[in-house]
Design a binder for these strands. Structure first.
Length: 424
RNA sequence: GUGGCCGUAGCUCAGUUGGCUAGAGCGCCGGGUUGUGGUCCCGGAGGUCGGGGGUUCGAAACCCCUCGGUCACCCCA
């Protein structure tokens, strides 16, 4: 491609029909479920002051080297949202809604990474957050929300990994312990291992390097170092999931990418995806975050689900396949005066999905378009019918055609469309 | 950010010891007599062979650079 070609920036992409139809079906499924769970929609800006995200963790790659930062004309340091939780917590701190505050969102995230399938510089997430509740039942509810959403889409090969990061004090002590273990036992594994083990011991736990596995397998586990309250909370979360029949795998080595997590963390992966990017959602508890942003101490838990990756998982499982606009009628104009314009308008005002061809195409061509449109009926506006004050209505599925009085078309189609599909 | 692979019509691809106006399927447009689609038949449009430079009498094919995609790492949704 020449550099002068106009194209979407690297790592970004357009979503066109009919793919966008699946996209909106997915979002609608999530919105419907969130509403049933008592969550309201929250909309926050795509840009925030950089400090909002630095709370997410200056040690994390997402903040340290993947953020889109910019300075506006007023000299403000802003950043494009790299993840969904921080802005929601910021909004909570700013507006102080009465807890429990249960919200869901649909938002684009930006991360400057090397793109590949399932990993983009702009990707979309739906997600949910609950602020002001430390009850483990909230953890269970939030996980059940995500879990049910995948089921709604028809996904069967999505698994849940569960872990607990403990309280900050638990973790600090554990990290020291873990670092010492890794540096001692991994002494022979090379400089990269030692550097990472020293800088971020937790991050090493889920590393993929085969030669590291022996040492990692023998590493101490965070869940064995939880304080009594942390352990109790974690056990109650598990009991709740058990009661709901939601299966999960305790995964002590599950390490999530943000520093703010405390206590419960979880991740959903698709086993249908034969790729490194198989995580389709993840989240956890962040009981310190609101306070760190200057708000009152407020526990919180939530998750984000990557739309592009879920769609890829849907492809792999062959669910959520194309869903078009499904028109009720397509008008074929064999006359050429404004009567087609009037009829289409009339049907649309009656609540029907109706379309037509443009540019005075031949009747044959118009029938082709009618067929391709996926409409249930083709409506022939021809001179012969016009003389009798009627139109021809053809069922494009069966091929049967009947003559209907012109003034009754809308009612006729409405009646038959509903009879054929009560759900419309 | 590091390394590997790939890049030919809208889509999926064929096209190598470098050599005739670059092909196929699908899609798109038109036609198969007078107003009816989905099947079939016929015809047509559409390509700076990602871009630039180089080697050569001659390059879609070889070399270099570059842009883009993809896979792995890193990280994550």
């Amino acid at each position: 491609m020449a550099e002068t070609d106009y194209r979407a920036p690297v790592g970004t992409h357009d979503v066109l029909p009919p793919e966008s139809g699946r996209w909106s079906a997915l979002v609608q499924a999530f919105a419907a479920r969130a509403a049933r769970f008592g969550y309201g929609l929250v909309i926050t800006p795509v840009v925030e002051h950089v400090e909002v995200f630095q709370r997410v963790g200056t040690a994390t790659d997402v903040v340290r080297k993947e953020m889109y930062e910019l300075t506006d004309r007023g000299g403000r340091a802003l950043a494009l949202r790299p993840e969904g939780t921080a802005p929601v917590v910021r909004a909570y701190v700013q507006h102080r809604p009465t807890p429990p505050w249960k919200v869901w969102y649909l938002a684009p995230n930006f991360r400057y990474e090397r793109p590949q399938r399932g990993r983009y510089r702009q990707h979309w997430q739906v997600g949910a957050e609950v602020l002001g509740v430390d009850d483990p039942d909230a953890d269970v509810e939030v996980i059940a929300l995500a879990h049910g959403f995948y089921r709604d889409l028809g996904l069967r090969q999505v698994t849940l990994a569960l872990n607990s990061m403990g309280e900050p004090a638990d973790r600090a002590e554990f990290v020291t312990h873990l670092r010492a273990y890794l540096l001692e036992r991994g002494a022979g594994l090379g400089p990269e291992f030692l550097a990472r083990a020293d800088a971020h011991p937790l991050r090493v736990l889920d590393a993929k390097d085969e030669s590291w596995q022996d040492v990692l397998d023998g590493a101490p586990q965070l869940t064995e170092h939880l304080s009594a309250p942390s352990r109790q909370h974690f056990e109650r979360v598990q009991a709740g999931l058990d009661a709901l029949g939601i299966r999960y795998a305790l995964t002590p080595r599950l390490v999530r990418g943000f520093d703010y997590y405390t206590s419960t963390t979880f991740e959903f992966s698709s086993t249908a995806l034969d790729a490194a990017q198989n995580a389709v959602g993840g989240g956890g508890r962040y009981d310190q975050l609101a306070e760190e942003m200057g708000g009152p101490p407020t526990p919180g838990i939530g998750f984000g689900i990557g739309i592009e990756r879920v769609l890829i998982a849907c492809d792999a499982e062959e669910v959520l396949t194309g869903a078009g606009p499904a028109l009720d009628a397509f008008i074929v104009d064999g006359i050429g005066d404004p009567s087609a314009t009037v009829l289409v308008a009339e049907l649309r005002e009656a609540g029907l999905g109706a379309d037509r061809a443009y540019g005075g195409r031949s009747v044959k061509a118009q029938w082709k378009l009618a067929d391709r449109s996926g409409a249930r009926y083709g409506v022939m506006l021809g001179p012969r019918e016009a003389e009798r004050g009627s139109v021809g209505v053809k069922d494009l599925g069966s091929g049967e055609q009947v003559e209907v009085p012109r003034e009754q078309v809308a009612g006729w189609i409405l009646l038959h469309a509903e009879a054929a599909d009560p759900a419309r």
